[in-house]
Design a protein around this nucleic acid. Structure first.
Length: 113
DNA sequence: AAGCTGACCCCGG
DNA sequence: ACCGGGGCCAGCT
């Protein structure tokens, strides 16, 4: 039988695979969608140990829209390449044109001009 | 058993 | 933009 940790891992992987091509999501967002609110760190952990070449790990970003890997690292460049290949605009290690998630102010006051 | 270590996140100053 | 502090927790020393 599966341990809780294994089930959590599977849930996270499902959530990542569910991100449509050309779109992005934050680690925390992925965790929430997997039914694990507050477990952003676990989402990152799962991705770090992932072996599946089919997994669209490059669609997962930090909540501020920036790529998690440091600028100049091989992983960072790889992620930028993959994102651009799907039409996602990346500038200065940051994804443009998409909000990873709406913040409270935006929900209450509406989007800024 | 007790610390450390992360592809993190949110709030405040 | 930068820094600190608290949360989160599986896997390794």
């Amino acid at each position: 039988m599966k341990t809780p940790a294994e089930r959590h891992r599977d849930a996270i992987l499902r959530a990542v695979r569910a991100i449509p091509r050309g779109q992005v999501a934050g680690y925390g967002e992925v965790a929430r969608r997997a039914g694990l609110p507050g477990r952003a760190r676990l989402a990152a952990k799962v991705l770090s140990g992932n072996e599946d070449a089919k997994l669209p790990w490059h669609r997962v970003l930090r909540s501020d829209g920036r790529i998690a890997f440091p600028m100049g690292s091989p992983e960072h460049d790889e992620q930028v390449q993959r994102l651009r290949a799907e039409g996602v605009i990346v500038e200065g290690g940051r994804v443009r044109g998409q909000r990873p998630a709406a913040d409270l102010d935006t929900l209450v006051w509406g989007p800024p001009d």
